[in-house]
Nucleic acid binder design. Structure first.
Lengths: 195, 195
DNA sequence: GGCAGACAGTTAGCCTCCTAACGACAATTG
DNA sequence: CAATTGTCGTTAGGAGGCTAACTGTCTGCC
């Protein structure tokens, strides 16, 4: 579990009290913020436990899913961004798709290859590049693992009705959009603080 | 940013397609699940950026907040679990409150002490224990940092109305509850698989 | 009083992430 | 064609998580 998060979230009344001293503190915003991080962490923890029982980490699972995408016939691909292009193949593409650095991807592919889930092959056309492919063992692992994973996700979301799930996704979407703007602006500001 | 998460979430139609092959895959559950993790990560990233600009990590910030709690007069404490007891003082208490192991807390306090935000003192009454206290510098940092932090949180949640925030917290609460049960059950099952 | 067990904090070793820098290669451009 | 510039994968070193094991201290029981 990656975040350091408080086990007990502060009560709303405490936030109200604190807002008296800090006018910038918006109690309902802080409450939603803390619940969002906390719930994300809990949910993450449940799936992590699942993965851990199969001796695989979140990062490695992500890479396997990305590779699997291209290995499957078009109709059954889980991850089909854009026009269902063949999945990423090189470490750089995988890193971009997974949202980690190339250096991190090197480490992930290292351990996946060590465990036999994945194989590196030099690219004959561009000798800088490598081609990463799922092995039969890697594919077998996914076929065996995914049903349980999907069951766990379904169980996590079972307290929510279909309508509530749609609502949740809609509300989260608003925050996502806003977060992307803030993230982007902060980056831009770092490069051009006067603009 | 701690999770390895896909930059582009799979589209809902793709989940529907995949559900044909995997009957355990509940498309709306998976959609909500992915959005939850993704949004949590984005939000985390924004605050992390904020913290990073002040050369402090999420983990260290959490420890400072826990220590600050006790250093403040009762009325203005942000984190007042139970009856607003004095905040945690020993590494073990801090670890418990933050949800990390004692070993991890040793490392966090190490770096915080190195940077002058915190001070370790031996407890004269129980020579096994240490007492961790915020220094003047640590307190000053929080006073300077918190307003911006609160502003960022308010900005993140600004697209949501008060009613939507309440709804979000309610829905997240349901998932949290469920996740806690699943987490607990999985742990118990590991200890007593037949019971 | 003395000893077994429990508890506090630390240490050691591992994993996953990061940034920065490198060597090898490709692409561009004079 | 040669030099610059950019890209690819890797390496090195740092931070923050974890578990397991250790040391020192307290507690409880005989």
């Amino acid at each position: 579990m990656p975040y350091l998060l408080l086990k007990d979230l502060p009560r709303y009344e405490c936030l109200l009290e604190a807002a008296k001293e800090f006018p910038d503190l918006d109690p309902s915003a802080a409450e939603a913020f803390l619940h969002l991080l906390h719930t994300g962490d809990e949910v993450f923890g449940v799936t992590d436990q699942n993965l851990g029982e199969h001796d695989i980490s979140q990062g490695r699972f992500g890479v396997l899913m990305l590779l699997w995408r291209g290995a499957q016939p078009r109709e059954t691909r889980l991850l089909c961004a854009e026009e269902c292009l063949p999945g990423p193949r090189t470490p750089a593409e995988l890193a971009e798709a997974a949202g980690v650095t190339r250096a991190t991807m090197t480490g992930l592919v290292d351990t996946l290859e060590r465990d036999g889930f994945v194989k590196r092959q030099p690219d004959p056309e561009d000798r800088r590049q490598m081609s990463v492919r799922l092995t039969a063992r890697g594919e077998k692992f996914l076929q065996a693992f995914l049903p349980g994973h999907f069951k766990a996700i379904a169980a996590l979301m079972s307290p929510l009705s279909e309508a509530e799930r749609k609502t949740l996704v809609r509300l989260l979407g608003k925050i996502q959009e806003r977060a992307a703007v803030l993230h982007h602006r902060a980056k831009g500001a770092a490069l051009a603080p006067t603009g």
